[in-house]
Design a protein around this nucleic acid. Structure first.
Length: 566
RNA sequence: CGGGGCGUAGCGCAGUCUGGUAGCGCGCAGCGUUCGGGACGCUGAAGUCGGAGGUUCAAAUCCUCUCGCCCCGACCA
């Protein structure tokens, strides 16, 4: 490709809307352009990278026996009613109405379609196990897209679905796909960590995410340096320390004027926060809910949502709290009526707690569960943080941020049950298909590579996904010989199947070098009167400072050699 | 949905408070000089100032409504 003919220009200045590094660099390099909030155009260079990432993914999906197909974007709304997932996806679903007033969904994912397909096309255990996948555009009306390609409303995703006869088969498929994911990330040059995850709106049981560690990532990861346990903070567990306060003592009301926050109460009474109980109020699918947790811990809303099996969860408003008869700052699980009470299991790890008296200016001392109050639902709703104790080995947990570049789920049979997707086993008994699903966002992967592989000059593409392999950079100046020689070399390299971006522009060396760096092409070949004098050309890797001279004779061969050696 | 910010040429911005000829830099087009890390000179094209309504002799500027975009939070695969 001649740079003079390339559609999409590089930019010196960064458009103001770009905040994240990948967004800035991709815009400046002329690889993407925004259409509207969370919707992007891929320009020729960006699209080449995209296609190469897709190629790597498809190779690995095919290698494990995956069969590529293409499912529709437009999906009947009925499918989503049947699965019930129009509730959990809620307003993230893009819907359209056709001329006959029939409601359709722009697919945010394809479990419904594929399960219904399996219902029609899978009959026997002989058809299993089965791995199907596609690379397809998904539509999700995100509340807040951000970070360029990191979080968008229209995006390409590779989604694979596995069908097995039983749980053991699913476990095997899950493992095979997870391994393939790791191979993909390695080939793309991305260091990725597999962490335990919540399955969210997709539903299902076990779930893992693949994270690229990055400060501007959206997810919090909790990890144990000692044993390697790692999980999304939404899911992460911790070993909670028992804060025993001795044998239960009689309940006692104490004056705590103006002391509302846990810290204020604790220091006023000279006790650690872990010897107090705090309450938080939520509205769960419209139901007023009180959550009790030990004072030193915080509520994890994802866990709470799961334990309550609700889809809409938010903090209760002040008026809702008052309406339920609660006194903010002195609220208490004691003596509540007609209010659902959820408790974190940390309240059983300790005794003689201090809790609110539900009376302005007063707390109770020596509160003990279950002697003093009732709980409707008990479970782990603690938000795990750095410094907490590893549930596996007792080590100290640490926290950092990551970009989710893949997510795998063990779905089980909840969807096949709903769509009656079953097969006949060896004994002629009809059983539901056991499913798994495996997602990978291509655009996000592309952005994550840039986040990971760049310097102050620009992008540094791994050779495998670079839009072109070679940046041919003649510094012709007033020397027509250099220009014509460059044309020759361009032809020779192309004849050998090498992807060359030929900077045939009449620009100064500075501009050419800076564009080469910004675009991140792996190998830069610089031809100038100097090098021509020695029948040579200068070769420089984008990620190295040093360069080497290559003889002009047999140049395509030398270039191929160089790429083989990396 | 809550909070903050911004819409003026392809990009980055000034002008808005205090109403009176729409500007600067980059980029773009032409000519010439330059040519190993974002050169220089001259000439030139390009903006219904996000949109609608209002106030006024006069609106980028004041008022009202509206649309769009970004950031933080909520939410989210």
């Amino acid at each position: 490709m001649r740079l003079s003919r390339l559609f999409g220009k590089t930019m010196r200045q960064v458009p103001t809307e770009a905040e994240s590094i990948s967004h800035q660099l991709l815009l400046r390099a002329g690889m993407i352009l925004q259409e509207t909030t969370g919707v992007y155009i891929y320009l020729p260079l960006g699209w080449r990278v995209f296609e190469k990432i897709a190629m790597v993914i498809k190779q690995e999906m095919d290698r494990i026996g995956g069969q590529e197909l293409m499912l529709p974007v437009l999906q009947p709304f009925d499918l989503w009613e049947r699965s019930g997932r129009y509730v959990s996806f809620g307003s993230s679903l893009f819907t359209v109405t056709d001329r006959r007033e029939r409601k359709l969904v722009l697919g945010p994912t394809h479990e419904e379609v594929i399960t219904e397909l399996a219902h029609r096309c899978v009959q026997s255990y002989r058809d299993l196990p089965l791995l199907l996948y596609q690379v397809q555009t998904k539509f999700r009306d995100e509340p807040r897209p951000r970070g360029g390609l990191i979080r968008v409303r229209e995006f390409a995703m590779k989604d694979m679905y596995s069908f097995d006869t039983d749980e053991a088969g699913l476990a095997k498929s899950y493992e095979i796909v997870s391994q393939a994911y790791k191979v993909i990330y390695t080939r793309l040059g991305l260091p990725v960590q597999m962490v335990e995850a919540d399955s969210g709106a997709i539903g299902g049981k076990d779930s893992h995410e693949f994270m690229v560690i990055a400060d501007n990532g959206e997810d919090d990861i909790i990890s144990c340096p000692a044993c390697g346990y790692s999980a999304n903070a939404e899911k992460a567990q911790s070993a909670k320390v028992d804060e025993s306060g001795g044998l239960p003592l009689p309940l006692e009301e104490i004056a705590t004027p103006g002391k509302k926050m846990i810290q204020e109460v604790a220091s006023f009474l000279d006790i650690p926060a872990s010897r107090t109980l705090k309450v938080v109020f939520y509205s769960a699918d419209g139901e007023f809910t009180l959550v009790v947790i030990r004072g030193d811990l915080e509520v994890n809303e994802t866990k709470l949502r799961n334990i309550l099996k609700c889809s809409e969860l938010r903090l209760a408003t002040e008026s809702e709290v008052k309406g339920a008869g609660m006194i903010t700052g002195f609220a208490s699980p004691l003596n509540v009526r007609n209010v659902k009470v959820v408790a974190d299991d940390s309240i059983t790890l300790g005794s003689n707690f201090v809790a609110g008296a539900n009376k302005e200016g007063f707390h109770f001392r020596n509160v003990n569960y279950p002697r003093d109050f009732h709980v409707d639902v008990m479970g782990d709703v603690t938000l795990t943080k750095a410094g907490h104790i590893c549930p596996m080995c007792g080590g100290e947990l640490i926290a950092y941020r990551g970009i989710e570049v893949g997510h795998v789920f063990k779905l089980g049979t909840f969807l096949s049950d709903k769509f009656n997707a079953s097969f006949l086993d060896r004994d002629g008994v009809s059983r539901p298909l056991v499913m798994g699903c495996y997602g990978m966002g291509l655009g996000r992967l592309l952005a994550a590579i840039v986040e990971q592989k760049h310097d102050d000059k620009g992008i540094i593409w791994p050779a495998l996904v670079a839009p072109y392999q070679v940046y041919l950079c003649p510094l012709s100046g007033s020397d027509p010989k250099v220009a014509s020689l460059a044309e020759e070399i361009y032809g020779e390299l192309q004849a050998q199947g090498i992807e060359v971006l030929f900077d045939d522009r009449k620009e100064s060396p500075g501009i050419k070098f800076n564009d080469a760096d910004l675009l991140g092409i792996p190998l830069r070949l610089t031809l100038s009167p100097r090098t021509v004098k020695n029948d040579s050309i200068e070769a420089k890797w984008r990620w190295e400072k040093q360069f080497q001279m290559l003889p002009l004779e047999n140049l395509p061969y030398s270039v191929v050699q160089l790429f083989q050696d990396i």
